[in-house]
């Protein structure tokens, strides 16, 4: 049961009519960002002119290392403050809200380096996620009957989610004993305890073994089926092709392309960003080509070394 009764699944075909260009307007944006700039000294880490994220669908944010994807995540979740720019969530101006208030609006994030809370149990990790807990007030916390019932309800939800993420056998263990992949699952499950409208996953598949990747992908898709919006950063193009409804490409802090994944690989700006300019082959989401690209890159490195010596 969701505290947001209006959540309902959205048909991905609504994006068919959207222009495939940076800053394209979406039929029903849940998140819009305008003129977001973040400088670190002389370096402009993020410079996003305009971005709209469609409600209820899965948007992938890709780009080469250092493109500013994680910084952008930090900015719109309140973990970092932009030098300039505004963004709205559900039409509400987010301004300079601190992270915990952003989260309370229904916008939750996970981290690139998983933040399992090691020395508390998996179950407590889950319960922590639940919003509006009356027992989190210092004075009410002292009187256990005041929050006992809510605690039981939260526990029920946590058990259901742990079952769904196949972690229920670990529920009494310290979260620090989980494997890397299980921590990713726990972090996603814990984020779901907040019952978010928008969930932002920072490299959810990094370091997860292939067998677990499939189940994680399934979980992400099921979020869309529940009507939740997903934004995720990912480097694995297979994952992007598999689950994303829309792809946003960042490079050097700017959004350089937007479109469905089928169109992104053909986009000259994207190819340039990933492979350098004056490259004439299209970027495809295909294992063979990826391998070839890697080989070429390696060969390039070799020849560069060759000229050095």
């Amino acid at each position: 049961m969701s505290r947001f009764s209006e959540l309902k699944a959205v048909d991905p075909s609504v994006l068919d009519s959207v222009a495939q260009q940076p800053g394209a307007a979406k039929p029903d944006p849940v998140l819009t960002a305008t003129g977001i700039t973040r400088r670190f000294g002389g370096l402009i880490a993020v410079e996003v002119e305009h971005l709209e994220v469609q409600r209820g669908l899965i948007t992938a944010l890709i780009g080469p290392n250092g493109a500013g994807k994680t910084t952008f995540f930090n900015l719109i979740t309140g973990f970092d403050l932009p030098d300039d720019g505004t963004w709205t969530f559900e039409g509400r101006e987010m301004g300079t809200l601190p992270p915990h208030k952003v989260a309370r609006q229904g916008m939750v994030r996970t981290f690139q380096l998983t933040k399992a809370l090691s020395k508390i149990t998996v179950m407590d990790n889950m319960k922590l996620g639940a919003p509006n807990q009356s027992g989190e007030n210092f004075f009410r916390a002292l009187v256990h009957p005041l929050w006992r019932q809510q605690e039981d309800e939260i526990e029920e939800r946590a058990i259901a989610l742990l079952d769904r993420f196949k972690l229920s056998h670990m529920s009494d263990e310290f979260a620090g004993t989980l494997s890397g992949g299980q921590r990713k699952l726990l972090e996603m499950a814990r984020a779901l305890m907040t019952d978010p409208k928008l969930i932002m996953l920072d490299e959810p598949m990094a370091g997860v073994n292939p067998a677990l990747t499939q189940s994680l992908l399934g979980h992400v898709k099921s979020l869309r089926d529940e009507g939740r919006t997903v934004i995720f950063v990912e480097h694995d193009m297979d994952v992007v092709r598999d689950i994303s409804d829309w792809v946003v490409v960042m490079a050097e802090g700017m959004i350089i392309a937007e479109g469905p994944h089928s169109a992104i690989g053909e986009n000259q700006a994207v190819v340039d960003a990933y492979l350098g300019t004056h490259h004439d082959s299209a970027l495809t989401f295909d294992d063979e080509t990826t391998a070839k690209m890697a080989a070429e890159a390696a060969a390039g490195a070799d020849s560069a070394e060759g000229t050095d010596t």
């Binding site: 979740t77 973990f79 601190p98 992270p99 915990h100 208030k101 989260a103 309370r104 939750v108 994030r109 996970t110 981290f111 933040k115 809370l117 090691s118 020395k119 508390i120 922590l128 996620g129 919003p131 989190e136 814990r190 984020a191 305890m193 907040t194």
Partner: peptide, 13 residues
């Protein structure tokens, strides 16, 4: 104690 940022990301002050 374990991780402030994780707590913040879950809406805790």
């Amino acid at each position: 104690r374990e991780d402030e940022d994780a707590a913040r990301a879950l809406g805790k002050n």
